[in-house]
């Protein structure tokens, strides 16, 4: 029968139900398996082939050579589009994505993440890792 207000039953059925929305950020949704979030770099695996830098569609990832087999990776989270092409391009599996997604920051400098290899004990620490970029050097092996 054609009548207006057909959807009313649906509405009434929903009255006692709990809301379809989540109480974020108190309640965090589980991220899907394989979700492409913030990247992680394993300096010990990198061989400096630069394929990740070449393939990155947004120029978000830079690899710098610190010394013999020592590479540092700088990722600009404000440029990264979380496409994981770099993860795919890396034959050495030096890059991987995590399910971290709460990356907003009002300080632009904090969006630059530097993953640095531990400099060998007998050399000077590289000059290009500086706190002046507001970067937070992180050692993923200690995470």
């Amino acid at each position: 029968m054609k009548t207006p207000g057909k959807i009313l039953m649906q509405v009434l059925e929903s009255v006692g139900k709990k809301p379809a929305t989540l109480n974020y950020p108190q309640e965090k949704p589980p991220m899907a398996k394989g979700f492409r979030g913030k990247l992680k770099f394993k300096p010990e695996a990198c061989v400096g082939c630069m394929l990740c830098t070449k393939d990155c569609p947004s120029g978000a990832i830079q690899i710098k050579k610190l010394g013999e087999k020592q590479f540092q990776c700088e990722i600009d989270l404000s440029k990264c589009i979380y496409c994981a092409q770099c993860v795919e391009s890396c034959a050495r599996k030096a890059l991987e994505y995590t399910d971290e997604f709460e990356l907003a920051n009002i300080d632009r400098g904090k969006l630059k993440i530097v993953y640095s290899a531990q400099p060998p004990a007998n050399t000077q620490p590289p000059t290009n890792v500086q706190p002046s970029t507001n970067a937070q050097p992180q050692d993923p092996t200690q995470k």
């Binding site: 959807i7 899907a32 394989g34 492409r36 589009i81």
Partner: peptide, 28 residues
């Protein structure tokens, strides 16, 4: 009312896409 219900149901397919592809929107 229709907007609210159809978009609630759309979440089901968005979740499935996120599960298959790793993202809700740009599946890649």
């Amino acid at each position: 009312t229709l907007l609210m219900y159809s978009w609630r149901d759309r979440e089901i397919v968005m979740d499935i896409l996120a599960d298959l592809a790793g993202n809700r929107v740009h599946y890649g």
